[in-house]
């Protein structure tokens, strides 16, 4: 299997789908001549031309709305947001239009589009550039929310998302773009709503997604030295959610740590905790732990940013608390 970076895997997924279906197109700020702010669309303008790789004026509410209108008439637009930090400018288009038009029109109008781009904290980008907004979109019926953690998942999930008839919010961790991994060639599809065990184990379950899977794997290595064997469950798709995979893991390990980069209040981790206590109450041998960012806007200063974001030491400590 060829090795490639996360961004190359995304590029391959989009290119294959555009090759396969003439109705698929990519639009957004700087996706064409500049090859994308993070070079995800490298070479795609040259390959597919200006009618299918569209540089737009800089206005998220504009090009997300354009995508909604283009989707309703039969195209399958992939709308790239430079980062999800700017998705708030387009949030009415995403939540009140893209997510609801199919329901409000009783199925008369479909909105098959993918809204994708970078999300989460990178290095020292401050409060407005380090947001994790998945809970906002997960709180919206009508949307599907995907957050891959590996290049292979990125490819398989993006291809499926492009073929999906519903609007999909596809959040790529900015710091993962350069990560490499083996990626299956050609037709490789991962169904939405199907999670993955990233590391099997027996002592404690860690639910982590996107970039946090990497952190969980590092913590697992540390814990292994002390004879603690954790299982890492990556839901991959946050909505719809593969809750059965999480439940079966918790029923085996009897312990759960939820790991997320988003701030804790009203977050996705809270939803997992609710469902696990509801369905696995008698299986739990310890209170559910959660490792999240501190509940403050992410600061710029290196030392402050580092202490706000989740780290390996805190994950290790949380797992140990469940085993006390």
């Amino acid at each position: 299997m060829p090795k490639m970076s996360f961004r190359e895997a995304l590029n391959q997924a989009m290119s294959e789908e555009m090759q396969r279906d003439p109705n698929v197109l990519l639009m957004g700020e700087e996706v064409g001549y500049y090859n994308g702010a993070y070079k995800v669309s490298q070479g795609m303008l040259a390959r597919f031309g200006e009618k299918r790789v569209i540089d737009t004026p800089i206005a998220e509410c504009g090009f997300v709305g354009i995508g909604v209108g283009a989707a309703m008439v039969g195209l399958r637009p992939i709308v790239e947001l430079m980062t999800f930090n700017f998705s708030l400018v387009a949030i009415d288009q995403i939540i009140n239009s893209a997510a609801k038009i199919h329901q409000m029109s009783a199925g008369q109008f479909k909105v098959p589009m993918v809204i994708r781009g970078a999300g989460g904290a990178a290095h020292q980008l401050g409060a407005q550039h380090s947001n994790s907004f998945e809970a906002v979109y997960c709180n919206t019926p009508g949307l599907k929310v995907v957050m891959p953690s590996t290049p292979a998942d990125a490819k398989g999930l993006l291809k499926t998302s492009i073929r999906d008839d519903d609007p999909v919010v596809f959040i790529e961790a900015e710091l993962l773009y350069g990560e490499t991994g083996e990626v299956p060639e050609g037709e490789y599809l991962i169904p939405l709503g199907k999670g993955d065990i990233k590391r099997p184990g027996k002592d404690c379950t860690i639910v982590a997604y996107s970039k946090m899977v990497g952190l969980a794997l590092q913590a697992a290595k540390e814990l292994e030295k002390e004879g603690i064997d954790v299982e890492i469950v990556d839901p991959r798709t946050l909505r719809p959610l593969d809750e059965d995979l999480i439940f079966s893991s918790v029923r085996k390990t009897n312990r759960l740590v939820i790991l997320q980069e988003a701030t804790p209040h009203s977050s996705f981790g809270g939803e997992i905790a609710y469902r696990v206590q509801k369905h696995c109450f008698d299986d739990l041998d310890a209170p559910i732990e959660r490792v999240a960012s501190e509940d403050v806007p992410v600061p710029y200063a290196l030392n402050l940013e580092a202490i706000v974001l989740p780290d390996v030491a805190r994950v290790v400590a949380a797992v140990k608390r469940t085993l006390e």
Binding site: L25, K51, R52, I54, C61, G62, F63, V64, G65, I66, G67, V68, G69, A70, A71, M72, V73, G74, L75, P77, Q93, S97
Partner: peptide
């Protein structure tokens, strides 16, 4: 913007 998207799609299609 949605109407402009449909119009843009008409150009493309």
């Amino acid at each position: 913007p949605q109407a402009v998207g449909t119009a843009r799609a008409a150009q493309i299609l």
